[in-house]
Nucleic acid binder design. Sequence first.
DNA 1: TCTGGGGTCCTGTCGCGC
DNA 2: TCTGGCGCGACAGGACCC
Length: 414
Amino acid sequence: MSAAESRRIRRIAHLDMDAFFASVELLRQPQLRGLPLVIGGGRRAPGWLGDDALEALPPEQIPLEAFRRLGQYTGRGVVTTATYEARQYGVGSAMGMMKAAKLCPQAYLLPADFERYRAYSARFKAEILRHATVMEDRGIDEVYIDFTDAPDGQLQGGLVLAQRIQQAIAEATGLSCSLGVAPNKLLAKLASEWHKPGGIFILMPEEVTQRIWPLACRKVNGIGPKASARLAALGIETLGQLAQVPEQQLIEQFGNSYGAWLHRVAWGRDDRPVVVESEPVSMSRETTFERDLHAVADRSALSQVFTNLCTRVAADLQRKGYAGRTVGIKVRFPDFRIATRAITLDHHTQDAAEIRRVAGQCLKRVDLSRRIRLLGVKVDNLLPLEQAQAADEAARNRQASDPQQLALPFTDNP
DNA sequence: TCTGGGGTCCTGTCGCGC
DNA sequence: TCTGGCGCGACAGGACCC
């Protein structure tokens, strides 16, 4: 082993785009720069659309007065993201739009344009792959990158490659991002936040506990509102405090898996690999109604939405080349309680009519005397279409052949 | 304040076959 | 023949993430 190789250590980067959706919108409509801006509201969010003359203009020439204001919003959506100028008024991601409208009615409102964000997402990811090939997709605006064996990935703890990627993304897309480079994914994710926006944070193994122990447990990916509330009830607020709790005690409180994981996290341990490829497990479509619907009084409207959801799931499966064996539904009631039902078939399907039929059977098993807020349809247990067909064929053959014969060992594969 | 849509993973329970 | 224990898949619910 050469001297260089012997110094090689595991270096994992987490890259997070800065205010991704808002930045994409501002590239397109720079006249909104510096103004309070809220993106979201779902399909029903009004933008500046509705005037043909305006629609014909290039986006950057649409006058400010043509944009709708948040105060004009009526509906059930949530805020997808808000610019810093809007956040100053207390508006934030995942907040109900009606609340946001009260806090900052003068904010400009843009409907989310996921098609455009996906296009930018593909561009920045392609740029990363030119510099490092081991990249894990973690959604529309973030990725993990394994720097360990990437060219120059070890230089200055990963700083050189991080700067190179950051610059390449800026040149190719006009967008800014932040990176954290650390010994594992858990720490890289934490580190990418520390010099946001436009920053790079290099975390070396010897400084891990000193850096992470002052942090609130809630900062960790996987410790959400419920878990952090339970920890707080035990007097545990920071990772440092969490690290002082014996592992066995955490296991007793949180169960085998989660308890042991919490202990590892507190000490900055995480050996998950950077996963380059993964298959989807499920596909679903769901919709929240503008007003709560009743199974009897709104029967035809509900039936139409239900069929439409099944058709869209089937279309998604067909377009992406998957078939699934489990069909399920989800119903959300006005009090936000959720009921789910699922049926597993003896074969895979991507057929809209069959999904509709099975989902209908699921729906019959839910008490629909109350009004419904949301309806969803999901297909689980996915396989790529060819594998699904082969699996179904094999299952049919097993059924057709004599079960006695199948039990004999010499009838198995050589 | 009145809470979207698309996912993943985990846990407890139950029935079934061995 | 009956029973206990075990492993496993299906199912429902829930936490969490972007």
